[in-house]
Design a protein around this nucleic acid. Sequence first.
DNA 1: CTGTTAGCGCATTCAT
DNA 2: ATGAATGCGCTAACAG
Lengths: 337, 337
Amino acid sequence: MTKGKATIYDVAGAAHVSLATVSRAINNPEKVKPETRERVLRVIEELGYKPNAFAKGLASRKSTTVAVLVPDMSRASIAEMMNGIADIARVYKYSILLYILDNDESNEEEVLKEIIAAQVDGMLYLNDEITDKQYEFLLKIKNEYQIPIVLSNTIYHEREDIPSVSIDYEQAGYEITKKMVAEGRQNIYMVSTVRKYMVNDLKEKGYLRAMKEANLAPQIMRTSGRISVNTEHFNEYFESHKVDGVVAVRDSIAVSFINVARSNHVKIPEDISVCGFQNTKYSRLARPNLTCVDVPIYDIGAVSMRVLTKVMNQEEIEERTIMLEHGIVSRGSTLKS
Amino acid sequence: MTKGKATIYDVAGAAHVSLATVSRAINNPEKVKPETRERVLRVIEELGYKPNAFAKGLASRKSTTVAVLVPDMSRASIAEMMNGIADIARVYKYSILLYILDNDESNEEEVLKEIIAAQVDGMLYLNDEITDKQYEFLLKIKNEYQIPIVLSNTIYHEREDIPSVSIDYEQAGYEITKKMVAEGRQNIYMVSTVRKYMVNDLKEKGYLRAMKEANLAPQIMRTSGRISVNTEHFNEYFESHKVDGVVAVRDSIAVSFINVARSNHVKIPEDISVCGFQNTKYSRLARPNLTCVDVPIYDIGAVSMRVLTKVMNQEEIEERTIMLEHGIVSRGSTLKS
DNA sequence: CTGTTAGCGCATTCAT
DNA sequence: ATGAATGCGCTAACAG
């Protein structure tokens, strides 16, 4: 009938030692004689004793808990990053306090309070974008409250006050565009979003660089993220524009484009070569399968959590901005090279 | 220079009251004279005081934190449920401790320990399936440690020891099959998974009921969840089977099927009518758009969190098993009715 | 190597 | 309506 109510005193009593020894047996095993340690651990097992996290946190001023701030969990990239984060967090014995931010920024202060109150040891911020205001918000948390923060897949200009982990989106944009150029495409469009995300901005930069290098005229089309709106948008384009290559900033946008193209009897990839960004499940559910930049989302999550553990332990980290390797997956939506 | 270090003592000192009054001003405002309350709250504001969650938890034995257990966050349904959970949790001031379970069950004991140690007030379990062993595990947590639990979108036979929130999958399977029957389809297949998920089992039951009612021979094909494997599987089917209707247990499976069908020059929906289950983004990215059962995933998350708050507050809940309304979305992959 | 002691910051009696 | 005192369960010096 281990009611989970056993305290360290109960263990101490049953093992005929003081509570300090029990505490050591758990936290500093090497500081206690092997045989008494064994005995204590056995009693712990028998009583089903679990140290109370509150008492522990109160006494030690550490929570072995990290806060993870995310917008909208339903974004595939965010969710997959969480898997990476959770796996590494487990390895280092950290618990995860999850905060899903509302769109309105009004509740940020409230979230901050909670985070402070929860005494988290560190914090991960996951997002495609970050506003100046939000960045200042994070800096405040970091400086004023001394809470280590790491950005996961979040780019903020060239500032490095806060360590970040992502891929080189500019380079990826450059490379995928180069691939189109190598196919001999002349009218390569980048399909980006109306809303300015910093990552998409970088992809655009890479695209522009590649186009310039190839002496081709860059053309950026901006669409909303919504499927229904995209469709109309794309249809108009087919009326009035000549296009033989499309680099979309997201897989889903690329798939939308392919759908519209095909219903207009345009052949993919013969007439138009199309590629996406991310390598989500969409890319393999589309016909033809989508060529795209392969972003190691899981790894970004995992590495950023790993970096956070280092920062929390005051370890030196080599670089403030970590860029993981990306790849390019060639599938049927582009020509064989 | 609010370093976030202010304690209740600092507030008490600055407001010229005792710490007990500060505590009351926060937790039992009605028990303190309005003017001193105002003064205390003002000081709290000025000092940027945030009550330490550990001390609070230790003293009150409550954490205002709930544990959320999920397998694999990258499943679209899980992620979307999290959004619903988080929104309601915020309303009721609960924090979320997230645990992403590994596939191997070896770490369940460890997770349990963490949950106990964290002193969570309640727990949400999200999954498509649950094994007997896992159910016993949850029951143990509930009974032995008195932790309220609610199952989100998780069905376990007819047992009601643990409250659950989901939709009536059997009925949904029945209805979507009826729709095919109403179209006049004769050879309606259900495409389910090799692995036995309890929810898919229910969908199959509903399918069987509808087929029996229509005097049609039921045919269940089982495929793996993996896209590449599906493709071969489906191709074989086209060689040897006559089929004019397909009810898939998941949208992604339906989309896979459509892809294979089309590359075999089968017309959707003229030759084969296809529908999925869930109404994910896939359904609108597919061509033709997918007809499917619309599962209110966000609501399932939200309602289950709401139910959990009730259980935690010892409020009576009307039913142990809550079934939310589902819908059926008709799109291009089936004939207009 | 082990025991004693003193808080950690707050909620909660019990007095006043 | 408010203050003083006690304890929640644990860690971390400090002794021994």
